[in-house]
């Protein structure tokens, strides 16, 4: 019974957070609702028995990506959105209006129909008869990362190094001799 309660609360946090992320007008609030959604997804991972993935999601997304987004919002003064853009000095809010949401919903409906068509094959597929009991996954993931998937592991470390150095260089303030 507590499994069900945990699943429902995590799923609710995820979906409510996602709906609010894509609809609020203030971008800092949108970042906080993304945090709520990511915490919900971590809870869903825990109910699926993926303990290591859940805590890595917590460390990387909550402690890394959301903090990064919040810093970027602050550094680009995105919350007020009061600057003039090329459409003139009218303060057009940068968070979307009725027309953009309509276009978004139409395309999302197309995507949804494609996914549902794919799911007919998924539901015909055989599934495990007996759901395995919860077991620790850390050692299995570790063995897999340095055994079967060692190439992807090493390439991802190079990728992260490239992202680190690249982000630092691209966003460095330039001297005024352009």
């Amino acid at each position: 019974m507590f499994d069900k309660i945990l699943f429902i609360s995590s799923a609710l946090a995820t979906i409510v957070g996602a709906v609010l992320t894509i609809s609020v007008k203030n971008i800092m609030h949108a970042a906080v609702f993304l945090l709520l959604s990511l915490l919900g997804v971590a809870g869903l991972y825990l109910t699926l028995g993926a303990d290591f993935v859940a805590v890595i999601q917590l460390v990387v997304y909550v402690g890394g990506v959301v903090v990064l987004m919040v810093f970027a919002v602050m550094l680009t003064a995105g919350s007020s959105g009061q600057k003039a853009n090329r459409f003139g000095l009218v303060k057009i809010p940068t968070m979307g209006n009725f027309r953009t949401y309509t276009i978004g919903i139409v395309f999302a409906a197309l995507v949804l129909m494609t996914i549902i068509k794919l799911y007919t094959n998924v539901f015909a597929m055989s599934r495990l008869a007996q759901i395995p009991a919860y077991s620790p996954t850390v050692s299995k993931i570790g063995i897999s990362l340095v055994g079967t998937h060692v190439l992807a592991f090493e390439i991802s470390s190079v990728l992260l190094l490239g992202a680190l150095v690249g982000a630092a260089i691209v966003s460095r303030p330039r001297r005024e001799n352009r």
Binding site: M28, V32, L35, D51, F52, V55, I56, L58, V59, V62, G63, G64, V66, V67, V70, F71, M74, P136, V138
Partner: peptide, 26 residues
């Protein structure tokens, strides 16, 4: 006694950094 307790502790305490920043910004 979570079997990934150390990573959980590090992850949850990074919420504090976010709280500090949002308090200052807000």
């Amino acid at each position: 006694d979570f079997n990934v307790g150390l990573v959980y502790l590090i992850g949850i305490s990074s919420l504090v950094g976010l709280g500090v920043f949002l308090g200052g910004y807000g």
